[in-house]
Design a protein around this nucleic acid. Structure first.
Lengths: 159, 159
DNA sequence: GGTGAAACTTCTAATAA
DNA sequence: TTATTAGAAGTTTCACC
């Protein structure tokens, strides 16, 4: 994967958009003392280059009744089943992210559920997938998500 | 945490915004055959209720030179040090999410790094935190992120 | 590359239903 | 609660630096 070079203006535009995608381009332009047209062109270029893959809403899942988070490690009977099992796991809507991993587990995923009872159902869905030998669950008692801006600043420092 | 009740219109608005926050409200209005003003009011209410916590850009970190993802499980000398260690871990910009967990680990986090060498540095930063006894790392060979829309649909079905 | 202005689109809040 | 409306604000394009 080729590394894309961002300049300081790109960086500052991303910095303003990263935690509020609806900031008007005119506001960004004012702050960076450039024209709104330039902001528009820069954002478009970053979209075309694939640096900006999209935008999404951050929802409060707790308020929607989904306060249970857990990580599930999956052991397979044969490593060759990895792709198949990963596909089945990704069909479960309560799985938010899944990884193929080295080490202990073959597949590792994060789930979001309503409560313990519901989590049990989700874990059983994973256990029931053909080729899954057993699973190991870690329950999250508290989640803290790190500010994306800070990672961005570090990335930019190393460009 | 009180469960917030969304009606079908709210749900469809979220559905259109969740993977593209810049969809014009007029487009949403057209599709749902309501006025743009109504869309505006609904979104505002969901923001005020805290259901919509914010919006963010989805960046391609691989293209920015950060293709390494790993999960790091942290063992502590004493459980009472959990809060302190979590705070120190959250100061590392390469840590994207951290959890307090039950089971094997006291703290569990996800890191994003440039390469193996850089990941080693990040893991050493975690190891060096006062109170950390040892860590265990799982390297992600492939990540697949599940569509937020599918979780949303499931949430809505259970309202 | 960037600008600035024009043309067009969207937002937002007040009013009315 | 929702719709309408109109002025304010934002986006996008383009001729010209």
């Amino acid at each position: 994967m080729a590394k894309f070079k961002l300049d300081d203006v790109d960086h500052q535009i991303l910095d303003m958009l990263i935690d509020n995608t609806r900031v008007p381009f005119t506001d960004i332009a004012k702050k960076l003392v450039i024209s709104a047209g330039t902001v528009h062109v820069r954002v478009k270029k970053m979209e075309e280059a694939g640096i900006i893959k999209g935008s999404s809403l951050t929802l409060d899942y707790k308020k929607l009744g989904y306060s249970f988070i857990a990580y599930v490690g999956v052991f397979l009977q044969k490593t060759s089943q990895t792709k198949f099992v990963l596909e089945r796991i990704n069909e479960i809507p309560y799985v938010t992210v899944a990884h193929i991993t080295t080490g202990k587990f073959n597949v590792f995923c994060k789930i979001r559920a309503r409560n313990t009872e519901h989590a049990k159902e989700v874990i059983f869905m994973i256990d029931d997938i053909e080729g899954v030998y057993r699973t190991e669950t870690m329950i999250s008692l508290e989640e803290s998500i790190n500010d994306k801006k800070r990672l961005m600043h570090s990335i930019f420092k190393h460009m």
